[in-house]
Amino acid sequence: MDLFSHSWLPFIYLYGLGGLLFVFGIIITLKAGSFDLSRYSHKKWMWVLLFGFVWYLMIHALMTWAALGIISVYTVPIVLLGMAAVFIAVTLMLKRAKKGEQETQNSSEVFYKSLEFVSYISIPLVLFLPNMSTNLSGGGLYLVIVTINILVAAFFNAKANPFKK
């Protein structure tokens, strides 16, 4: 049975249109100046905003894969808990960096980027790689998501990495 209209079509609509609105919101508030990346606390919020978007996108993607039988249903909580752990770790680290008033730390920067890499790419890649050859639509979509994440992360690293001067 073709489940496209019940699975990936609503997913694309949700994160396509919703994603546009989300990015539009960030751009508008940045342009208005109410969201000001020159302030340290706002840089931290940028991390939270981006994580939130990827977090929800992954929730729906994982649940869809699980429902279609591409991955085990038990994979869903494992990946999500992993992402939540990364989020908490990075957020706490950003808080500590503020306390110490040391925004530029080479070691922290490396750690931050490693965690980001892990959260965006490594965990799901390892988990889904065996299924990609057998399910092209799920794998293809996954690659698109990963590519978008890399681009987003690269763009905001340059603009908003709190460890960068």
């Binding site: 919101g25 508030t29 969201f35 729906h60």
Partner: peptide
Amino acid sequence: YLNDWFFIAFFMFG
């Protein structure tokens, strides 16, 4: 329950 994030920037910073 899982679609409230899109407007969060508007809310938090507007």
